[in-house]
Amino acid sequence: MSDSHGAHGGALAHHFEDLEQQREAHTLGMWAFLVTEVLFFGGLFGAYAVYRSSYPQAFANASNQLDHVLGGINTAVLIGSSFTMVLAVHAAQLRRKWQIFGWLWATIVLGAVFLGVKYVEYHHKWEHHLVPGPNFLFEGQPGGSEQLFFALYFSMTGLHAFHMVIGAGVLIWLSVLALKGRFDEPGRNAVEMAGLYWHFVDLVWIFLFPLLYLLGRHQ
């Protein structure tokens, strides 16, 4: 989203009048983008709501198969990463490149931990024949509405994980730019924009976790 004609040197792109206008445009653009993301996930949340109300029992049963301890740990990890991201943005405002670098990497590491835990969870599901498809077996039975739950579980968490990967990629790139001194001059707000995105991805998880792991447990 940080669209500037870098070639002209300086932080102000040609077609803007001043840094203020540029900054506002970038921020509004980022928010508009996040709105599209909300709707993107919204389609999945809609499908989830429909099926949860059609098959409450099956969804509760299937939900019990998820490891809420691992899910809980991941929630904590992500909240932690949002915190380090805030610190990175703060450092960027103060234009301290090594601090930016450090906090960005702290965020990246936490993101990686999250993805690692996710991998462990996926792996368990695979071993227990809970991945939708021909191998799917739930309590010894193929198919059934439980499969729908897992289809949604994998689509939603998969899409979320995909967003994390993209986010981590952006952060790595920004950390390199930080070292090159790209954020030493005023008017560079890429870190701030990336921060908005990262918080959004966290927020999605804050919805996913209770919906998938907690709602209707142990009925």
Binding site: V50, Y51, P132, G143, Q147, L148, F154, S155
Partner: peptide, 14 residues
């Protein structure tokens, strides 16, 4: 691709 059953009534989908 994977017949996950979101829309196919054979798999409980709608």
């Amino acid at each position: 691709l994977f017949h996950i059953g979101i829309f196919d009534p054979k798999l409980g989908g709608d």
